[in-house]
Simulated scan of single mutants.
Amino acid sequence: MASKDLIEASNDLLRRLNPKNTTENLNSLISLFRNDPTLTEDLLSDTDQPLLVARDSENREYLLCDWNRDGDSYRSPWTNKYTPELEDGTYPSDALRNREIAANQAFDVYRELYYDRGVSSVYLWNQENNDFAGVVLFKKSVGDGAESKGTWDSIHVFEAKAVPGKAKFSYKLTSTVILNMVSSGETIGEMDLSGNMTRQSGGIFDVYAADLDSDREQDRERVDADHIANIGKLVEDLELDMRNLLQEVYFGKAKDVVANLRSVQSLSQANRDRLVHQEMISSMSKR
């Protein structure tokens, strides 16, 4: 089987398994492809896994993902250092690193507003000319070790490309939310609700001096501020839409299923209500 077919088959299998066990299932697949490093790298880059939390040399929490990984080491967005240390690790340019620092500070405020607690990380990397790409990550866990617990992982990957001849940038955003909720107790027994959702968005926004390669610090700060505001708006809007969709799909559908299994009111009352409803429809249609 060709490598492309193996990747497609692996991704299809992972989509059908419990998202809570994605990391374990992915490691099992990788063990089958251990003689093909390229296939392993492709599978790792194509698969969204629940985010892991680590601490850097300054004891600051940050999130691990494929976008801040180089070999077996991970780069902290706060210290810009790899753990374990690397002599020839991949780093953003100095200008993009300054934008990365500002983005981490801004999205840390976003995390505080929308998540209250949890961990956020932003990683950027260079592309051609003034173009760049990056990922915005959020993770929050609640009730660890209690009867009810849950985790929320948001992964927002984006590309920013300059529009030729204009002070504008085109942004493309792909967002994935991985949700896992577990509850156990004598009253309801055990419940495991896990899933993920991926959506895309984008737009063209103004960026100050987008077509200039200015060396002035004030100009660079204004460009960075515009980029962060534009990306933040896309992330905020799409994440809110996905949160509402997850609520509708998970809880709305669960409510409908339970209602069909066991009625809250007596069946006789339900039948009477249904007859009254039918009589009202009939009388309205005769007018």
Rank of each mutant, 00 (worst) to 15 (best):
D5L: 12
I7M: 13
S10V: 04
D12W: 08
D12Y: 10
L13D: 00
L13A: 06
L13N: 00
L14P: 00
L14M: 03
L17E: 04
N18R: 08
K20W: 02
N21T: 06
T23H: 06
T23S: 14
E24D: 14
L26V: 02
L26T: 07
S28Q: 12
S28M: 11
S28W: 08
L29P: 03
F33D: 00
N35E: 07
P37F: 01
L39Y: 04
E41H: 02
D46G: 00
T47K: 04
D48A: 13
Q49L: 10
Q49N: 09
Q49W: 04
L52S: 13
L52W: 05
L52V: 10
A54H: 03
S57A: 14
E58Q: 09
E58G: 10
N59R: 12
E61F: 05
L64F: 06
C65W: 04
D66W: 01
D66N: 10
D66F: 09
D72V: 03
Y74S: 12
R75N: 08
W78Y: 07
Y82C: 03
T83F: 05
P84D: 10
E87Y: 05
E87R: 07
T90P: 01
T90Q: 00
P92T: 11
S93Q: 05
S93C: 05
D94H: 04
R99P: 03
N104I: 00
A106N: 11
R111N: 09
Y114E: 08
R117E: 11
V119P: 00
V119H: 06
S120C: 09
Y123I: 03
W125M: 02
F132C: 05
A133K: 06
A133V: 04
V135K: 03
F138C: 08
G143M: 07
K149S: 15
G150W: 06
H156M: 13
G165H: 03
T174N: 11
T176K: 01
T176N: 07
N180F: 02
M181D: 10
M181A: 14
S183L: 02
G185F: 06
M191Y: 00
D192C: 08
L193W: 06
S194N: 15
S194A: 15
G195H: 14
G195N: 09
G195R: 06
G202N: 13
G202C: 10
I204Q: 14
F205G: 11
A209K: 14
L212S: 12
L212R: 05
D213N: 15
D213T: 09
D213K: 04
E217Y: 02
E217Q: 13
Q218W: 02
E221I: 15
D224R: 08
H227P: 03
N230L: 14
I231V: 15
K233M: 15
V235A: 11
V235E: 13
E236R: 09
E239L: 07
L240E: 15
M242Q: 14
L246Y: 07
Y250M: 14
K253I: 12
A254P: 00
D256E: 09
D256I: 11
S266Y: 01
L267S: 08
N271D: 05
R274Y: 09
L275F: 08
H277V: 00
K286C: 05
K286H: 08
R287M: 12
